[in-house]
C-alpha cells in the first residue's frame, strides 16, 4: 500500500435555503460502500459526541446530523485560526430503498466518525440458484 500526504481542504458549508437550526453547518466527508449484506456509510464528524448525532431514514432520504460539543471552548480566546467550527449535516437519497430493512439500520460514532449500516432485506440479498439435474 502506498502512502500519501494529507492535504488540507476547505470545509464546505451546507447550502440550504432554509435551515432549521441557527449557525452554520458543514458538509461531512463521506465514504459509502455496498457489499452483499449492507450499505455502509462513514461520515467524518470531528467534535461530535455519541449522544449528539441523529440518523434518520425517512422514505428514501437518509439524513445525518451531528452537533459539536462546545464545552471544550469555554474560557478560551482564539489567537490564531485556520478553520471554523460547526455542526455537521448531510442528506442522501437512497435508491432502491426497499432493498433495505429500515428496522435494522444501526449507527455508531468512533473517534469522530459516524458509521451507519443499512442491512439489506433478505429478499434483496444475492442468492445462488441451484441447477437441478
Amino acid at each position: 500500500m502506498t502512502t500519501q500526504e494529507l492535504t488540507p481542504k476547505q470545509k464546505q458549508e451546507v447550502e440550504e435555503k432554509e435551515r432549521t437550526r441557527p449557525g452554520r453547518a458543514f458538509v461531512p466527508d463521506v465514504d459509502i460502500r455496498e457489499d452483499q449484506d449492507a450499505l455502509w456509510l462513514w461520515a467524518d464528524m470531528p467534535g461530535v459526541a455519541q449522544g449528539d448525532v441523529e440518523v434518520e431514514l425517512h422514505d428514501d432520504v437518509l439524513r445525518l446530523e451531528g452537533r459539536v460539543t462546545l464545552e471544550d471552548y469555554k474560557d478560551l480566546e482564539p489567537a490564531y485560526t485556520e478553520y471554523n467550527v460547526g455542526n455537521f449535516a448531510r442528506r442522501f437519497t437512497i435508491p432502491n430503498v426497499h432493498s433495505y430493512d429500515p428496522d435494522k439500520v444501526s449507527a455508531r460514532l468512533v473517534n469522530g466518525v459516524l458509521e451507519v449500516k443499512l442491512p439489506k432485506s433478505e429478499r434483496a440479498k444475492p442468492r445462488r440458484i441451484q441447477i437441478q439435474g
Binding site: 502512502t3 500526504e5 494529507l6 465514504d31 459509502i32 460502500r33 457489499d35 462513514w42
Partner: peptide, 17 residues
Amino acid sequence: STEERGGYHRRERPWGK
C-alpha cells in the same frame, strides 16, 4: 480502509500521512 468486499459509491474521506 482495506475492506475489499463490495464496491464504493463514494470515497471522499482523506487518508494518508
